[in-house]
Amino acid sequence: MSDAGTLLAPPGTAPAVPGRGASTTVATLEVVGKATVAEDVVALTLADPDGRRLPDWTPGAHIDLVLPSGDTRQYSLCGDRFDPRTYRVAVLRERDGRGGSAYVHDTLRAGDRVGVGGPRNNFPLVPSERYLFVAGGIGITPLLPMVAQAEVLGADWRLLYGGRRRASMAFLDELARHGERVHVMPQDETGLLDLPSFLGEPDPATKVYCCGPGPLLDAMGVACTAWPPTALRTERFVAEQAAPVRSAPFEVELARTGATVTVEPGTSVLEAVGAAGVEVLSSCRQGTCGTCETTVLAGVPDHRDSILDDAERAAGDCMFICVSRAADDRLVLDL
């Protein structure tokens, strides 16, 4: 093919993403940058090792980051969505975590590879004339691209950003250009956040976005009781809760065909069943378009797509086999 520099690999001819380390997901990305952006916070910049486009995302989205240990963590994307070739996430060192964040801080280096699933968005920015953003600590991460978006849209917006102390608050430098729209409130300087005075009177043309620790979200719920029910949108960041990705092969039984296929790490279910002669129609191969939807008859899928919501994931009756895998030893599919 000509002009290879500008081309994407055509599907069907693209090789499987090689498995690196113990586990595999949608894509294997390379850490191309690691920088300390506040006390106990590092920002990682991730890119495709071959410089290809990454799946598109919208503000509020997160990715699953699969560490070489097999541990999976979810992090909000906090970079520039107009840049199709890099993702940025910011990771807070969790003092009492299970070690995923410690690994990112202490061991992971530029040049290392990580597995990435998603992106997925449970916290989308909905259209509004005016936005009030409230961030607590590392909860600034999903709000950072929202602020950029509100600016692009010409919306009226304010950000209230609380943290323990100024040195622990990430991205203050990037937020500085917005001037008085951003209210920086380090607790050791200004005390607890005064939510009622920041929120003001309920306004049907305003949406309120909040991300931060549980007590902040609880306080926001109380502060917004007089607001329209759809005004407040929150994301509770739950540190280190995602289940580890299986690093062992699993079996897929094809109920109609009668065959059983072993899916190795580094191979997608789509590729594995295709190699067994069962071609399943697909398109994006990124878990976004929905073409390869397959009915699950038994077993528990490990959903890695960007399509199903939490309820649909929990139902476990269908999966997108270009990216999703098995949580246990065996899946039975209607193929």
């Binding site: 919208t58 989308p124 978006q149 692009v152 849209l153 929905g290 199903l308 649909e312």
Partner: peptide
């Protein structure tokens, strides 16, 4: 994007797997 985001998200959901099942 960004104006495309919300209408697309809504229509993808409305025409999504659950509705079609």
């Amino acid at each position: 994007p960004p104006r495309h985001d919300a209408p697309r998200r809504v229509l993808s959901k409305v025409l999504g797997p659950r509705a079609l099942h």
